[in-house]
Design a protein around this nucleic acid. Structure first.
Lengths: 232, 232
DNA sequence: TGTACATCAGTGAACGCGCGTTCACTGATGTAC
DNA sequence: TGTACATCAGTGAACGCGCGTTCACTGATGTAC
């Protein structure tokens, strides 16, 4: 919503500097943006993607338009739309893991790591500027290089989760069989939930979140019992 | 396989009727395909998507070209590329569920439902003409309507799985807590695995498959024990 | 069996559009003297 | 402090291209008489 209205504004902002130089004194010379940062281009891309489109469907001209620069200026910053895309994925993964890790650190003190993490994750869906939805989408679509970039981020996530899980189990004097697989499965389920939940209204989100927590509990409980029940 | 080779034939068939009317007497008049079916268009789309591209990125002209008809002829069959896409998703889901259901039915007799299902699923990745990869991809990307179409198919899948799970547990005289969530989680994990595995060589696939089976066992085992371990 | 006619899946040509990319440019900013 | 110069992020114009869609068409097939 914001973006859809922001876009025309940006466009006219550019035109304004032609037609109406009165106000735009800060931008000194005619029709020229002073300078633009990579971050502004990332933001422009995120705005455009919204909850629907995939990076692959972004056009260079769209992004440039949204950022308020001429199409050819794009090349000053990236060789390609793909180059932007991959850096954007990395950046999104970093932002996300930082937030979730902090949530888990806090949660450990309260012993409710599952609930806290899932809830933070869902809250994050709204709060962040689209970083999460980006990862969710590009992990399953897009070019091989996109997938690799996303997988790298998920692996970080999974690894951090695994360490936290092991720590908690140690505190509780129980032990997980195949903790790496538990972490992997949880990662998959949580990101899946995120992908599903992203279009839903808040009340339905809560419901999906509850279900996900039960699934996670099953995984943990199953992992604790799996040595006893050594079914082939 | 059959289709990939059938496609070029179609294309050249059209050109042949221009350049080399000698052989193509069956196609009576110059440069005209007799008639084309919806299924041929579906197949053309599947060929084009391959393991990488998403439906959304298909152009009408691409599909028409692949199918060997003029671009405007497309409109005789679908109002839109989107209309084709959604019908294609439904069709793919149906094909897939049929195969997996049969696999499970067989597996029940051998008591190895997990292993059989996962293995069939993976084998199917190669065997089918792209139906599976289609579902995997479009579930996470694409327009809302694509997502809905995929979700519908996954729900069918999940429901059938749940029924089978309940039946098996009854035979084994044990019981699952929240069988619907177990089915849901398994569905998610399996389809996730499929998405990941689709780019991998055969040997690595096996490994991912093994991991997935362990995850599924954790879920089942966890579900059986969850009543005892009634952690909040 | 033959003739007239309707139907409808196919056709080529044309349209306007947004795209990615190139070109030679401009002018603000920083550096050397 | 002032002057000369290099750098480099910005620019508008232009290109060729593939796209979706429209148009009036054609001719094979089926139906009515």
């Amino acid at each position: 919503m914001n973006q859809t209205s922001a876009l025309p504004q940006n466009t006219t902002l550019l035109q304004d500097s032609f037609h109406d130089d009165l106000e735009k004194v800060s931008v000194r010379t005619v029709g020229r943006k002073a300078t633009i940062t990579k971050d502004e281009l990332f933001q422009a891309a995120l705005n455009l993607i919204g909850p629907q489109k995939s990076i692959a469907s972004l056009s260079l001209r769209e992004v440039a338009r949204e950022a308020g620069i001429a199409p050819n200026s794009f090349y000053r910053h990236f060789k390609d739309i793909d180059e932007l895309a991959i850096e954007l994925i990395d950046r999104s993964g970093l932002v996300l893991r930082k937030i979730l890790h902090e949530a888990r650190i806090k949660a450990i003190k309260h012993g409710s790591i599952i609930r806290s993490s899932v809830e933070v994750f869902i809250k994050q869906l709204d709060a962040d500027e689209g970083n999460l939805s980006l990862l969710l989408r590009e992990g399953y679509t897009g070019s091989t290089s996109y997938k690799l970039a996303v997988e790298k981020q998920l692996n970080y996530f999974q690894q951090e989760l695994q360490e936290d899980l092991i720590r908690i189990e140690r505190i509780n004097h129980s032990k997980l069989v195949h903790p790496e697989l538990v972490a992997k499965a949880i990662t998959q389920l949580v990101f899946n939930m995120g992908a599903k939940v992203i279009d839903l209204p808040t009340d339905e989100r809560k419901q999906v979140a509850e279900q996900t927590m039960i699934m996670i509990r099953m995984l943990l409980e199953g992992s604790r019992h799996l040595d006893e029940a050594q079914i082939h």
